[in-house]
């Protein structure tokens, strides 16, 4: 028993080291963003918000931020509008070719984003359309669709059919049943899907680099451009803002949903 115990502490130590490996670089980004020095790296020479102030005064970065926010929000809206009905079809109905179609809709996960980027760009070029915001939007919808499907399907499985059937028996028509029963039950799944889509869109760089133009930059594309010179405290500051945004929103949402569900039961 004693030997097992020591084995277990080794396992625990190993796990802690893996966590350090995963998070040390990210923590370094956050710490260094507060370094006031021009070529801010270790050692820290004080603590200042200098680079955050500089970010807030940089018009092209603010523009990229606005662009990313609008793009992420529209992607989230659009992809849940088409994805939630599809998820319902897969969970609630039996029809021929169901498995094949489910696999088809999940394939974007397995296709490298580089190929996706080239393919869509080539298609747009063939249609003689310029790179535009619309290209970014439809591209992000394709990238996020499989993730939204998976998340929404997983939640849908847990919602029981009986509630809808009860409403129907009590005289509600299909539309009423959906609005009054199914939709409220579905809301957490829809919100989870939207949140997921927003962060994927907001963070994406691999495919977006193919589709973005100088006028239609997102924040990650902007960071990529800034990296061309070298890493700077300004990049670290911008990275920290992005981390704060894309990490805190889902954490907050998870916390709120847990609180509400606890209050409800």
């Amino acid at each position: 028993m004693k030997r097992f115990f020591s084995g277990w502490s080794l396992i625990r130590l190993y796990t802690i080291l893996v966590y350090v490996f995963l998070f040390a670089p990210i923590v370094a980004v956050i710490i260094l963003s507060f370094n006031p020095e021009q070529f801010g790296s270790f050692p820290m020479k004080g603590f200042s918000f200098r680079w955050y102030v500089k970010l807030a005064q940089n018009d092209s970065i603010l523009h990229a931020f606005k662009n990313s926010m609008i793009l992420g929000s529209l992607t989230a809206l659009l992809v849940t509008t088409i994805g939630v009905p599809a998820a319902m079809a897969f969970v609630r109905y039996e029809f021929p070719g169901k498995n094949a179609l489910n696999t088809l809709l999940l394939t974007p996960i397995m296709i490298p984003e580089v190929v996706l980027g080239v393919a869509l760009l080539l298609f747009i070029r063939w249609l003689q359309q310029p790179k535009s915001f619309l290209l970014l939007l439809i591209g992000h919808v394709v990238i996020t669709l499989p993730y939204v499907l998976l998340v929404v399907q997983a939640r849908l499985v847990g919602i029981r059919r009986e509630y809808e059937e009860a409403a129907m028996t009590l005289g509600a028509n299909a539309f009423h049943t959906f609005r009054e029963v199914t939709l409220p039950l579905l809301m957490p799944a829809i919100l989870a899907g939207m949140l997921f889509a927003f962060t994927i869109s907001f963070d994406d760089v691999t495919a977006t680099l193919f589709w973005a133009t100088a006028h239609n930059q997102t924040v990650p594309v902007k960071i990529f451009g800034m990296l061309r010179n070298s890493i700077s405290p300004e990049i670290n500051a911008l990275g920290t803002v992005m981390i704060a945004l894309t990490v805190s929103v889902p954490l907050l949402a998870g916390y709120l949903s847990r609180r509400f569900s606890r209050g409800g039961s």
């Binding site: 509008t81 088409i82 994805g83 009905p85 599809a86 319902m88 079809a89 609630r92 109905y93 029809f95 179609l101 088809l104 809709l105 394939t107 974007p108 296709i111 190929v115 996706l116 080239v118 393919a119 869509l120 080539l122 298609f123 063939w126 439809i138 591209g139 919808v141 394709v142 669709l145 499907l149």
Partner: peptide, 24 residues
């Protein structure tokens, strides 16, 4: 009914993924 629910997603994937990959 399931086909109606699936139509938008399938259209999107066909138009924006399957056809562009064939183009490559």
């Amino acid at each position: 009914k399931p086909w109606a629910l699936l139509a938008p997603s399938i259209t999107a994937v066909f138009l924006l993924l399957v056809i562009p990959v064939c183009f490559i």
